[in-house]
């Protein structure tokens, strides 16, 4: 699987490349700025671009802007954005109207090689990856309506994993549940939260996050 990495911090970039290489990815290019990244994506046509959100010149959201451009222009290329801080605002910008092939993770996540490698693959395959910290913050947020309060603990767990972009299959494995049980939980959650059900994992992420964000 072909990967490009963009981060202006060389030390961290090298670390990520080492981890990716160890996990069996083929790193076909690296960049320190957003324009260099865009060029790299066009020339190398990677499966995934891993992008730090803060890059020169302003060190604010250059990486995010570039990620959105890749998402819109190179639909086959997955984009995984890494950030020092997780912000709901970033997630919403990144997901846009059509999620899929995008991911948003805390930089710390790279150290867990297996998990990180699976996240990169998920994004490359057109799935969505949302950092668990974003989801837990959203779930922990105080809400005017108390529809979330109607959910059981198990249902909340399932909702969280859905929001992280995991498929029913992944949820089943994670929670060690049967496929039918997971499907039952999902149906129950959607009916309790009055959300329209969708078979598409990515649309499901969007619906769940949009709901949680309100």
């Amino acid at each position: 699987m072909r990967v490009v990495v963009a981060d202006d911090a060389v030390l961290f970039r090298e670390g990520v490349i080492r981890i990716l290489a160890a996990a069996g990815f083929e790193v076909v290019g690296q960049a320190g700025t957003a324009p260099a990244l865009l060029e790299l994506v066009q020339s190398q046509a990677p499966d995934v671009a891993i992008v730090d959100i803060r890059m020169p010149p302003t060190h604010t959201d250059e990486g995010l802007v570039a990620a959105c451009q890749i998402r819109d222009l190179e639909k086959r290329v997955g984009v995984l954005v890494l950030s020092q801080y997780v912000e709901t605002h970033h997630v919403m910008r990144l997901l846009g109207e059509r999620p899929g092939g995008v991911g948003y993770l805390l930089k710390d996540r790279v150290r867990d090689v297996e998990e990180f490698a699976s996240d990169v693959r998920r994004v490359a395959d057109g799935g969505s990856v949302i950092d668990p910290l974003v989801v837990s913050r959203m779930l922990g947020k105080s809400r005017r309506d108390s529809l979330l309060d109607d959910l059981s603990d198990r249902e909340r767990q399932v909702l969280g994993l859905m929001a992280e972009g995991r498929s029913n299959q992944a949820i089943r494995e994670r929670l060690r549940l049967s496929g039918k049980t997971v499907e039952a939980h999902v149906r129950s959650i959607f009916s309790k939260l009055e959300l329209p059900e969708t078979p598409d994992d990515h649309r499901r992420v969007l619906a769940v996050l949009a709901y949680l964000r309100v």
Binding site: F12, E14, G15, V16, I19, K107, V110, R111, V113
Partner: peptide, 15 residues
């Protein structure tokens, strides 16, 4: 950045 890199290296070593 250094701590994250260090953390990655540690994890790698652990693996």
């Amino acid at each position: 950045q250094r701590l994250v890199t260090l953390s990655g290296a540690l994890k790698l070593a652990q693996t």
